[in-house]
């Protein structure tokens, strides 16, 4: 089975002089950043520093301010090439798992729907939910719901994937399993993942940034050795976790 966007070229995300204020507070100003194409960048930082806002900015859900822009390395805007995996309860309770995965096709008016439904079932199979296509979210566990959300993200077949704490509500073991699956299934796409969990960032990020300050800036890239998903008991990962936690504590004191 081929995950379509994998073959497609995934652009870098280039942010130039972006400015975003929220309720009078300037979250960031003159922010420049670049996230490498086909790689997974993880954003860490204290609550309220503006991680989610940055993600919204990249997705085109918030304006980048006067003079700011968010483009791909090819110069075209990123908005419209993004699959979004939000923080809150991701699934629509009135739709079946299949309906949730294929909601994008219906929202864009793609016809015939039967094609979309078939492709939705393929994506559900990829995340290990064959046989649950007709179940409503209420009949699924928290982990399964996140799998459906992941299948929906894959269904969108977009080169850029933005994830806002997608696994934060899950128990530790389910989280570990899903991290690995996500890293495997989203390989070769440009992924930006916001998380509170340093270990999660170190396991599935090609590069990890700590966001801090007000207005916020993006800290220097921390590049863990090896390819994600990295093993839990990798001593290098554990050593970096200590370093990362120290960074985060400093970032919090600075805020």
């Amino acid at each position: 089975m081929v995950v379509r966007a994998g073959a497609q070229h995934s652009p870098d995300i280039v942010i130039r002089s972006a400015r975003l204020s929220y309720g009078g507070d300037v979250l960031f100003d003159q922010l420049d950043a670049r996230f490498a194409g086909g790689r997974c960048a993880c954003l860490l930082g204290p609550s309220g520093v503006g991680k989610s806002s940055l993600l919204r900015l990249i997705a085109g859900l918030a304006p980048p301010g006067a003079g700011g822009e968010v483009t791909g390395s090819d110069g075209a805007p990123i908005a419209g090439r993004v699959a979004w995996m939000g923080q809150t309860e991701p699934l629509m309770p009135w739709l079946s798992a299949r309906g949730n995965v294929a909601i994008g096709a219906r929202l864009r008016g793609e016809r015939p729907y039967a094609d979309a439904a078939r492709r939705a079932d393929e994506m559900l199979a990829l995340v290990g939910l064959s046989g649950r296509e007709r179940d409503r979210p209420a009949a699924l566990s928290g982990g399964m719901r996140q799998r459906v959300a992941l299948a929906r993200t894959l269904f969108e077949a977009r080169p850029v994937v933005l994830m806002d704490e997608p696994f934060s509500a899950l128990d530790a073991i389910t989280r570990l399993v899903l991290q690995e699956e996500a890293a495997r299934l989203l390989a070769r796409r440009t992924v930006v993942l916001v998380t509170h969990d340093p270990l999660e960032a170190l396991r599935i990020g090609h590069v990890v940034h700590v966001m801090a300050g007000r207005p916020a800036t993006l800290g220097p890239p921390l590049v863990p050795p090896g390819d994600p998903p990295r093993a839990l008991d990798d001593p290098r990962v554990l050593a970096l976790q200590g370093e990362l936690l120290r960074h985060l504590t400093q970032a919090r004191e600075a805020a």
Partner: peptide, 25 residues
């Protein structure tokens, strides 16, 4: 739920389809 509306926007949904397929249900 604002998250569903965000999702619809990133999926390039028209306002009319967002109303009919997300807000109404």
């Amino acid at each position: 739920e604002p998250g569903w509306l965000d999702l619809a926007r990133t999926m390039s949904a028209s306002p009319w389809r967002t109303l009919w397929l997300v807000r109404v249900p």
